[in-house]
C-alpha cells in the first residue's frame, strides 16, 4: 500500500500508449487494440486488489 503502485500504473499506461502507436504505424490496428485491452485488464486487476483492501478495512472498522 505505497506509492510505487501509482508509478507502475503510469509506466504501464505509457508503455501501452507507445506500443499502440508502434503497432498502428506498423499497420496492425487489431493487435494495437489487443495490447491496449491487455494493459487495461492488468491495471484493472491491480486497482481492484487495492479497492478490495480499502473495502475490507472500512468494513472491519465501521463493522458494517
Amino acid at each position: 500500500m505505497n506509492i510505487d503502485l501509482l508509478f507502475k500504473i503510469a509506466a504501464i499506461g505509457i508503455l501501452v500508449a507507445v506500443l499502440h502507436q508502434v503497432l498502428v504505424r506498423a499497420g496492425r490496428e487489431d493487435q494495437a487494440m489487443m495490447t491496449t485491452l491487455a494493459g487495461l485488464v492488468i491495471v484493472l486487476t491491480m486497482v481492484i486488489k487495492e479497492i478490495s483492501t480499502l473495502f475490507n478495512t472500512v468494513r472491519t472498522l465501521f463493522n458494517l
Binding site: I14, V16, A17
Partner: peptide
C-alpha cells in the same frame, strides 16, 4: 494526454491510497 482510461485508474488508486 495519451491514454485517458489509465488516468481514471490513477485517480481511483490515489484516492484509495
Amino acid at each position: 494526454q495519451y491514454k485517458p482510461e489509465f488516468a481514471i485508474y490513477a485517480s481511483i488508486l490515489a484516492g484509495v491510497l
